[in-house]
Write a protein that binds this DNA or RNA. Structure first.
Lengths: 159, 159
DNA sequence: CAATAACCAATCTAATTAGTCGGATATTAC
DNA sequence: GTAATATCCGACTAATTAGATTGGTTATTG
């Protein structure tokens, strides 16, 4: 598992798509505009996302991309995996003395950790990222109400 | 949080150090040999690890590096942070229309996720990675005992 | 003093990342 | 049917990062 800018762009774009889910197709031009990612780069990312069946496309005017399934069924690990293709990680495959020697121990430790990280990201779906934020915002508003409502100008309290 | 080959090398090297902890200083030449990472690249990584006070060095013959504290007090996130310096992630800082517009929502969603990942890696220490493996190995041996002990030569069962 | 090994900096190359360009194809609206 | 939209596609380029190389200096040990 690796987590680079490429994966970040992909997750960001998919979150944008999830936020606008149910409003019809979202064009890459819109995502490009909103997220500050170049259109052609998005095209490359979405080619991979489409091949991984995470999004489907609608061509022509008014077209764009849509999630293939509910945001609650799309997991971060799937997104990262589809754009950030994995490298062989261990650098150990070719070396003869490495199989089950002491040398190999550390490689296995790394791959254990790596799969833990992967598992972690496999449990986080797009909908829950969005939901978590809504909960936090509600909590913040409640907190603000209790503590600062009286002292603060009304327009700063209301959201 | 990003997780690249650089961070992987650093974690691998630190795991190697942790495995050999208590045997006196471990030289970079040894790690280089065992893990297949070039000596000069290790030097660059360990310069950063030392600046982050994760390792201390002993110069001269028989010298090398040692963990500054118990492996159970060194966390993966600390290692990754010290070598894989963070970029500004959002690409939103400079854009005027982004602050609290709809555009910024997705950026915040990403940064929420990013801090979740960071938190996750902040909870995993080197000792537990090693321990987890030992537990798994013991379990594998137990399983083997129950199923195959009678049929297998003794020297392959005992470790 | 000779060997070892950390320390340091600059430089180079290879690989990857990020973004560009010029199209082709499908779809819609007029 | 044609003009506009927007996906699709491949090749190309610029910039950054990864990793290697070189050529040392300094500290420690025997």
């Amino acid at each position: 598992m690796r987590l680079t800018a490429k994966g970040r762009y992909a997750v960001t774009a998919m979150l944008d798509l999830a936020v606008h889910d149910g409003e019809g197709p979202t064009s890459l031009a819109d995502i490009s505009e909103r997220q500050g990612i170049s259109l052609s780069y998005l095209e490359q990312l979405f080619a991979k996302l489409r091949r991984s069946h995470l999004v489907k496309s609608v061509r022509g005017p008014g077209g764009g991309y849509q999630l293939t399934r509910a945001a609650s069924s799309i997991y971060v690990a799937q997104i990262v995996d589809s754009v950030d293709e994995i490298v062989d990680a261990t650098r150990c495959a070719g070396r003869a003395n490495c199989n089950h020697g002491e040398t190999c121990l550390t490689h296995e430790l790394w791959s254990d950790l790596s799969s833990q990280i992967h598992q972690f990201l496999s449990d986080i779906d797009l909908a829950s990222i969005i939901a978590k934020r809504e909960v936090r915002e509600r909590a913040a508003r409640q907190h603000m109400k209790r503590d600062d409502l009286i002292r603060m100008p009304a327009e700063e309290v209301e959201a």
